[in-house]
Amino acid sequence: MKIQNPREVYGRTLVEMGRENPKIVVLEADLGRSTMTCYFEQAFPERFFEMGIAEANMTSFAAGLSLTGKIPFTNSFAVFAAGRAYDQIRQGVCIPALNVRIIGSSAGLSDFGDGSTHQSVEDVAIMRAIPNMTVLVPADANETRTMTRAMADYRGPVYMRITRNDQPDVMPEDEPFVAGKPHLIRQGKDVVAFANGQMVSVALAAAEVLAEEEISLRVVNVSSMKPVDEAALVSLAEGMKGIVTVEEHSLIGGLGSLIAEVMRGRNVPQKSIGIADRFGQSAHNYDDLLEAYGLTPAHVAAAVRQLAR
């Protein structure tokens, strides 16, 4: 399986888009070598805005740029992009439904060393709750690229969270982005795993382990958290003994909540794997955090075994 880095691919994709579309502008809050907007800065300095470490102003400034017909991408770590600038996103961007793209980088626990201040466990919940907002959690670099490219023409505000880490490809290279569409990644007949972001790979690894035990796990990538194609999700859960949701996010307001909302009244047992109402913390590597927060293939497999019984 090919390994790529989503933020690297995001940075290169912005340059491609900048070449094709003079309306693309990029705003950065002094993290350009982490978010990889440094490539756009080199290529199009006149359409790049170093906003300093001032996420609130960056977000409202982007609203202003969009009001002159530009397609602004704001960039910071997810925790600041969605958290520090929440009111600016709500008031100036989402109420009038402007074409501002808010990119939350180093999302989830992926900034493992920096600890709770820099790890976003609730960004998806916050962004989902805002009317008019689209919320995307790409599973790999390929999907990061197709989603980013789709944002050139997409109407209304978008929040996309992307990880810091290298990722194995799980999505095809050129599958066009369709808002709301879940993607069947691995066929299975006993239990369905709804996952997004890096957790799609984790669910796939669990499926490999389970296959040896003759438990068949279907894996679905729910990268479009809002809007969602509810009928498609329901149909992907049809005939399953249970549902496991897997997310690198708080269990409150994220994918586990979404699936419970969609499946309400359908009597399919659900187990939710995610971060149990707590903040992140520092670790020497990302895997230590996945272990500490119960986000490994072994945790997924254990939940599936219970459901498959």
Binding site: S60, F61, G64, T68, R90, G92
Partner: peptide
């Protein structure tokens, strides 16, 4: 622009001016 959450209109104005 949508203003009234105080402090934001000037930032939006800056973005319009830049655009």
């Amino acid at each position: 622009a949508n203003t009234g959450s105080l402090g934001q209109g000037l930032s939006i104005a800056c973005g319009i001016a830049a655009g």
